[in-house]
Design a protein around this nucleic acid. Structure first.
Lengths: 214, 214
DNA sequence: GACTGTGAAGCCATTCACAGCT
DNA sequence: AGCTGTGAATGGCTTCACAGTC
């Protein structure tokens, strides 16, 4: 197959291009060049072309890319021409925020269930959802055809939570807990570690400071 | 200088090693080998050694690394032997969640101010902080010696917010809004785009499905 | 014998530079 | 003339393999 072995960085950028194209499209722009995309998202024009070329020939030589068409293609590549249903486990501040995060909805991700073990949280309403006990996870995952589980629990409950989600049948997990999850190979896991980002930031800030001292 | 040109991936992993070492240390383990660290965080032993070697010789041949000592070193490298003060702009669900996120505090990041433009939010208490109007940003940044600003506003307010933060004097920005920020070179920006992570996940899930069809 | 630290090799991603189309 | 698509060149990160140390 041709689509195998695409750099993950390419997918990350594709996602960014895609949203940039939405912005541009909303402004009514019809055609765009690789350099304009590059300029808009902060990468090189060659990079944009190479990334797109992994998936096909979407442009016209001498002209550029049709914005609507390219937007459509990027969404399709990313699997966003369908709705993805998700559940959130952990109804703390973070879980609540993710549940109501507009950015998800805008890209076709819909939270259809939120769960917690804490009795004081069960029964609470978040958006149009009621917080349920974690024992209800399998039921909801099956009934609502949920593909993705979001782990927003404290670190020490994360593994257990992920196990329940996988057993219930989710295919992908987005993990916000600061732990490495141990899961079967066929489950896609992505870790979003908020303090790692801050730590890279502080590392770089220190390096900058050192450079200035030279 | 020797410390220049360290792969960003190395820093990311260092941050993960560091937290893993905290766990291990709490269990009372004294010595650890590169393979044990590798096992624990899901990378290769050679990778662990190479990453650490960028910064010095922390181990003992034939023995391994002293857990406490290595933990101390990683924290120092990441700049976590000091407290970092931050402000959050945007007091919506996400801003509120970040404000009270325990993972930050545990690693020495302290939120000392939260701001919003929305009059219905100003005056609200979040943890021990009162939501202030964004016009107060410069004052707080100066008085509390704030180094990092977190942008948790909607996308269309993000650039403006970042500009205010930079003018107020923050050195680093953690951006949760799904937009590319245009900022001076000497400001460190990191984008945490929550839907990008989901989109990589859905892309990979689709690829898996395709592979299985072959 | 066990495990680190590291040059060298291998691999992967990005950039270059140009042929090919409009 | 302008811009895409792409093989070739470059650069950077990861893995290998082993010398060095305990």
């Amino acid at each position: 197959m041709k689509t195998l072995k695409i750099p993950e960085a390419t997918i990350t950028r594709l996602s960014v291009y895609s949203r940039f194209l939405e912005q541009v499209d909303r402004k009514g722009v019809v055609t765009i060049s690789s350099s304009e995309i590059a300029e808009g998202v902060g990468v090189s024009p060659a990079q944009v072309r190479k990334d797109l070329a992994y998936f096909g020939e979407f442009g016209t030589r001498g002209v550029g890319y049709n914005v609507k068409e390219l937007l459509h293609q990027t969404l399709k590549i990313l699997g966003l021409n369908q709705e993805w249903r998700m559940v959130v486990v952990g109804a703390g501040n973070l879980g609540t925020a993710l549940c109501s995060y507009r950015g998800f909805r805008e890209r076709g991700f819909r939270v259809v269930g939120i769960f917690d073990n804490d009795l004081t949280k069960i029964g609470k309403k978040i958006m149009d959802l009621e917080v349920l006990g974690t024992e209800k996870i399998p039921e909801v995952v099956k009934e609502k055809d949920v593909g993705i589980g979001i782990v927003a629990t404290p670190a020490d409950a994360a593994q257990e939570t992920a196990d329940i989600l996988v057993k219930a049948g989710v295919k992908g997990i987005l993990n916000f807990a600061p732990t490495i999850l141990n899961l079967p190979e066929d489950v896609e896991v992505r870790n979003v570690d908020l303090s790692v980002h801050l730590e890279i930031l502080t590392f770089n800030l220190r390096v900058e400071r050192l450079k200035k001292m030279v």
